[in-house]
């Protein structure tokens, strides 16, 4: 087997896979601004469907963004201190706790949602509020925040850094806010992007937990796919992409320089 042939074959396959991933995205984006997708581009471009979607589903957008931010706040408050505690004392116990906290990600959202419904579905106020969905999102995204922060904390010499600060007279709050947090900024940022992205796109749990008054963006998407014409579903998807692609790109940009440094 000669090298150029091998290169070409691999490149070909890679291009094919890339095409498989990107073409439907482009198609759906295009469909969202096409007058009539069945007739094709020749029918002309329009923003009509996008306006329609905003008209019909603006509340789902607002709820999803609000949920994502609330979820971010919760995972920061819960996750960052937890990650610090786990990093500070690597022992069998903390390892076990870490494993435990990750279980909600390993278990399908459907199961978690059913469990939440059975346990808390009886509390009407809670059940019908967006907080019910928030709980699900926090459960599902918290491990990602903890993991991201923990990864950075375990890569720096936390112990010596803190001893250095202590030798200079820094008490725990001083150390935590002045030394530890600034030094795991990259982990917090990566975790935050992940949490927001996952929360905005979460469907498995949310579909079970939502009520007609608490519809999130993906719930609305499923709804539009099932009951609206293709162009509206596409336009809605387009809006979703516009929302989520910058987040995903930021995540890529964030992970790239760090990977290069490691080598």
């Amino acid at each position: 087997m000669n090298r150029p042939f091998l290169f070409a074959a691999q490149l070909g396959l890679t291009l094919l896979v890339a095409a498989f991933l990107v073409i439907p995205v482009l198609m759906s984006m295009l469909a969202g601004v096409t007058v009539n997708f069945f007739q094709g581009i020749s029918s002309g471009l329009t923003l009509r469907w996008v306006w329609r979607v905003l008209d019909l589903y603006a509340d789902t957008l607002a709820l999803s963004l609000g949920l994502a931010l609330a979820c971010l706040a919760c995972t920061l408050v819960l996750g960052v201190p937890a990650a610090y505690a786990l990093a500070k004392r690597p022992s069998r116990l903390t390892r076990l706790i870490e494993e435990m906290l990750v279980v909600p990600v390993a278990v399908p959202g459907l199961a978690t949602a059913l469990a939440l419904l059975i346990a808390y579905g009886g509390f009407r106020e809670f059940r019908t509020s967006a907080a019910f969905i928030l709980v699900g999102h926090v459960l599902f995204t918290l491990p990602f925040m903890i993991r991201a922060v923990l990864a950075v904390l375990s890569s720096i010499d936390l112990k010596t850094l803190e001893e250095g600060a202590r030798s200079l007279g820094a008490s725990f709050p001083h150390r935590f806010f002045g030394v530890i947090l600034p030094n795991c900024r990259s982990g917090i940022l990566a975790g935050s992007l992940m949490v927001v992205t996952l929360s905005i796109g979460e469907f498995n749990l949310t579909w079970m937990l939502h009520t007609p008054l608490t519809k999130t963006l993906p719930v609305g998407l499923a709804d539009s796919y099932a009951s609206m014409r293709l162009e509206i579903g596409s336009a809605y998807t387009l809006i979703f992409f516009i929302l989520i692609l910058p987040l995903l790109m930021a995540m890529q940009a964030l992970s790239r320089p760090r990977r290069r440094k490691e080598t």
Binding site: T160, G164, G169, A170, P182, R185
Partner: peptide
Amino acid sequence: LPIEKRNVGMVFQSYALFPNM
């Protein structure tokens, strides 16, 4: 007294400088 209160100066093998400053 914990180290914070002893007013000692400490120099570490791995420097322990704060990378964020």
